[in-house]
Computed example of a mutant assay.
Amino acid sequence: MSLPVTSKQEVAQLLAQLPDDATLEDIQYHVYVLEKIRRGRADIAAGRGHTHEQARERLARWLPR
């Protein structure tokens, strides 16, 4: 069993994958996306997710047909 990856390790891995000419804005965006993914996974693990069908039903109220 592997140890959990720390936030610092996650960012270090991200930085290693980005091109050398990545801007600070690029880095900020990718860190933002990582955090959103982490929060989404935590929500799903806590039972706060929705099925595909539930999402369709919710979006149908907002989107014109």
Rank of each mutant, 00 (worst) to 15 (best):
I37N: 06
R48T: 00
G40Y: 11
V31Y: 04
R61G: 08
Q13S: 11
T51L: 04
V31G: 00
I37G: 01
D21M: 02
M1V: 10
A22T: 01
Q9G: 03
G49R: 01
E25D: 07
P64C: 07
H50W: 13
E10N: 06
A16H: 10
H30W: 06
L34H: 14
D20Q: 10
T6V: 01
A60Q: 12
Q28L: 08
P64E: 08
L34C: 13
D43W: 05
T23H: 02
E53Q: 12
A22F: 00
Y32V: 05
I27K: 03
T6C: 03
S2K: 12
Q9F: 05
W62L: 15
A60N: 11
V11T: 08
A46H: 09
L15W: 11
I27P: 00
H30T: 00
Q17V: 03
R48A: 03
R56Q: 03
H30S: 03
W62K: 14
R39P: 04
Q13W: 13
P64L: 05
G49N: 07
T51N: 05
L63H: 08
L59H: 09
D21V: 01
L24Y: 13
L59V: 10
M1A: 13
K8Y: 15
Y29Q: 06
R56K: 01
E53A: 13
H50C: 13
M1S: 14
L3G: 09
T23Y: 04
E35R: 12
K36V: 12
A55L: 11
W62C: 10
V5P: 00
E10G: 05
S2Y: 13
V33K: 03
A42S: 11
H30F: 09
Q13L: 11
V5Y: 06
R58D: 14
D43P: 00
E57K: 06
Y32I: 05
D26E: 10
R61F: 09
G47P: 01
E53V: 13
A46F: 07
R58N: 09
I37R: 08
R56S: 00
V31N: 00
T51H: 06
V5L: 07
E57A: 07
D26I: 06
A60I: 08
R38W: 12
R39V: 15
R41I: 07
Y29V: 04
T51P: 03
D43K: 01
R48W: 08
G49P: 04
H50A: 15
R38L: 09
R58L: 13
T6H: 04
R58P: 02
